[in-house]
């Protein structure tokens, strides 16, 4: 418990970045009619690959029309 409290100040900014990226990527994924590859796979990437996952989705997942 005390360890978590010690690390909390370090975690807060990382958590904020992760959350913002994750939520924007998920919202975009849901709204987009179609993406490269299956949507559920992208959802997994966005949810479980920290930080890099949403960025990979933004760079590679979206279709260039």
């Amino acid at each position: 418990m005390s360890q978590i409290q010690e690390y909390l100040p370090f975690l807060i900014p990382v958590l904020i970045i992760q959350l913002v990226l994750m939520i924007s990527a998920l919202v975009d994924l849901i709204r987009r009619p179609s993406v490269r590859g299956p949507k559920w796979a992208w959802a997994l990437v966005i949810l479980f690959v920290n930080l890099i996952g949403p960025i990979i989705y933004f760079v590679m997942g979206r279709k260039e029309e």
Binding site: P13, I17, V20, L21, S24, D28, L51, I55, F58, V59
Partner: peptide, 16 residues
């Protein structure tokens, strides 16, 4: 196009 968001996040991570 999420360019701003991506660059913001990447730069923030490098800063940290």
């Amino acid at each position: 196009t999420y360019r701003l968001l991506i660059v913001m996040a990447v730069m923030a991570v490098f800063g940290l």
